[in-house]
């Protein structure tokens, strides 16, 4: 990696949470236990692209998103933004970084302060970051509301007066108010109904086009991720197991886990039944991640080597990067 053209460059990002010891742990003097949620994530975000992140619940998608915006302190690894190390040294630096890298949350009901009107929410964001002078703010609020297709009288209303889809628009407007370069969307539309989902996704795509935004789109709905993303990363137990262009990954996934995941998504065509056998077993606990390839317990192609050594993410001709010892054979089959 010589010259780095990506806007956000993440290397070897790891994150773990300490488990609160139970009373027995204290009495028996057991050592502290850690949930290893992220295990060496490498990512690049090019300016203007959408990177989709998919994986089963608990695989670390939200943790990744929260680490990227500094909601969790950086424990291990490096985040470069515009080739500058984001170590969040001073509050001013952190604040400037957050202005440029914004996040939107999954739950439209808890991500807005129930006691602040939409106008107050936007006003606060605009004035804290001095995006506009005090006199220009009302005009800017109207612009933002237009941008996310909310009526202008929305400014005087409280969050409970809006539907879920409208609330996510408010959250988008809040994020856009500080004119960020990167938007991190953690399950932005998961809580919404399909028809409303489509409205919000259209809005996001349109805004990206118009404002040249870079988006990290975290979701568990594969159809949606495929629709909005240029590239997609598949995460399993806190590691990227496959990353590549959306087209090739969905058309021809290589990693056995990607295959299983994509296969499990039910098609709306009743005659397009699943051909492969469903995965057996469940996601192992991140408290004790299996040795070697973390997927070996559920993988139909596992061999001896998979139990012993952890496969690295490697580029494969004609595909993206895959972390599997048998990627080459699987590509041929």
């Amino acid at each position: 990696m010589t010259e780095n053209t990506s806007l956000l460059h993440v290397t070897n990002l790891s994150h773990q949470f300490k488990i609160d010891p139970s009373i027995f742990d204290v009495i028996l003097r057991r050592p502290s236990r850690y949930v290893k949620v992220l295990n060496g994530i490498d990512l690049n975000l090019a300016r203007g692209e959408t990177l989709g992140v998919v994986g089963e619940s608990g695989c670390g998608k939200s943790t990744l998103a929260r680490c990227l915006v500094g909601l969790y302190p950086l424990q291990n690894g490096e985040i470069l933004f515009n080739n500058q190390n984001v170590s969040h040294k001073t509050r001013a630096e952190q604040r400037d970084y957050n202005r440029r890298v914004q996040m939107m949350f999954q739950d439209p009901y808890s991500s807005l302060n129930p006691r602040m009107t939409v106008g107050q929410v936007l006003h606060e964001a605009l004035s804290v970051h001095k995006m506009r002078s005090e006199t220009e703010i009302p005009e800017r609020i109207n612009e933002l509301l237009d941008l996310v297709s909310l009526p202008r009288d929305a400014a005087d209303k409280l969050p409970h007066q809006f539907s879920g889809g409208q609330r996510q628009r408010i959250a988008i407007a809040r994020a856009l108010s500080v004119e960020p370069e990167i938007l991190i969307a953690d399950e932005l539309v998961s809580a919404l109904d399909v028809s409303v989902q489509a409205q919000v996704v259209n809005l996001l795509l349109d805004l990206q086009e118009r404002l040249g935004l870079t988006i990290l789109f975290v979701a568990h709905d594969l159809r949606l991720v495929r629709h909005v993303s240029h590239r997609v990363a598949v995460i399993y137990l806190g590691s990227i197991v496959e990353i590549g262009s959306s087209d090739s990954l969905f058309a021809n996934p290589i990693h056995p886990y990607s295959r299983a995941l994509l296969n499990a998504a039910p098609s709306i065509d009743p005659d397009k039944k699943n051909t492969t056998a469903p995965l057996t077993g469940e996601l192992p606990s991140p408290l004790n991640i299996p040795s070697g390839c973390a997927f070996h317990g559920r993988c139909p192609h596992a061999t001896e080597i998979c139990k012993k050594s952890k496969p690295e993410l490697k580029a494969l001709d004609g595909h993206g990067e895959i972390a599997c010892h048998h990627a080459k054979e699987l590509a041929l089959s």
Binding site: V194, S195, V196, L205, H227
Partner: peptide, 21 residues
């Protein structure tokens, strides 16, 4: 409802969406 499901549509194209709630 059926058309707003993003299956078999061009990637990143505008999805069909019912107006309103």
């Amino acid at each position: 409802l059926l058309r707003s499901v993003p299956e078999d549509v061009a990637p990143r194209s505008e999805l069909y969406s019912l107006p309103g709630i």
